[in-house]
Design a protein around this nucleic acid. Sequence first.
RNA 1: GGGUCGGUGCCCGAGUGGCCAAAGGGAACGGGCUGUAAACCCGUCGGCUCAGCCUACGGUGGUUCGAAUCCACCCCGGCCCA
Length: 332
Amino acid sequence: MLIIGDLTGQVGDPTGRSATRTVLRPEEATANSATYVEQVLRVLDPDRVELRRNSEWLAGLTLPDVLREAAGLTVAQLLERDDFTRRFSAGQPISLAEFLYPLLQGYDSVAVRADVELGGTDQTYNLLVGRDLQRAHGQQPQVVLTVPLLEGLDGVEKMSKSLGNYVAIADPPEEQFGRLMSVPDRLTTRYAALCTDLPPEELAALEADVAAGGTRSGAAKRRMAAAVVALYHGPAAAGAAEESFNLRYRDRQVPTDVPEAPLPGGDPVHLPGALVAAGLAGSTSEARRALDGGAVRLDGRVLDAGRYDLPREELAGRVVQVGRRRATRFSG
RNA sequence: GGGUCGGUGCCCGAGUGGCCAAAGGGAACGGGCUGUAAACCCGUCGGCUCAGCCUACGGUGGUUCGAAUCCACCCCGGCCCA
């Protein structure tokens, strides 16, 4: 069974947070949960998973219900948690909603009469609250099973979408491969251990290669990245992803397999505007700066600073790149 | 409810009437070097029809030739008291 925390998602898990989380609107929480489901079902067999939303049971709780459950939890216990302690002593606000979070999550276990609950090590506290509540309800307390947390691409924070340091399960192979290659060296082995099915001998070899440094370390990271990609897209796609990665980033070739974007109308084409329209820049100001900073290439050739209006025929059908990662082809 | 301190750009944080799109640091982005690693160096880091203009320092209103800076009220947070 997979529980989607659609109701608890509105509160936001305070775990590991150093700032108050704002309460999401129900629509936002629903939108988030849809993407979870989409990703999870790439890993779990849809025919064998029972999906439940915790609003099913949490939304129907009455105030007396909540009070009864809350009576068993003490403020001292909650404050013992590292994240709360830190915020409390730093003089930062902690909302009551956040304080209630472990209780709500714990109640999930009661509602589904859980035997075993699985979570990251950061969830230990929340999972244990589930045991307490089950006991209070005369149920056999669940077994708690935790798995190590994966650090994100920055190598510091835990991997999370809101921090932007993640590789998405639904990302295309090239994207996954590229992101994995940007991980700090010291995490190569960890990623391989936690995110691939590589056998122990191979993991040991990887570790030795990383320790050796230089290109051996780089090669080890490639094997790790390929193994991860293969898990979600198959070995063939993983190989192709590595190949296109090599061409694009190692050999610095102009990428050919890029999305197309329509060229805006008019004859001298205002390039900053076109870059924004193509999604290669967030604003025309940003596009101008990129242009002036030598970050914009047309078919591999760096464009001159200060030239913002270019004749149509210079752009049509060409590949524009902003930095090495963003690229598109102007159609027509 | 009372007292007190505070709310500045993604984050931290300087700025107490003009020299402020706002020091400094971090993050991020681009360039160099490289193994799209790390370290290091350089540049950028509100928006626009971009040598100018617009919007911005919790909100609203006011004082002033001129306000992030002064005044009033309001909103939000920390701490102490209740």
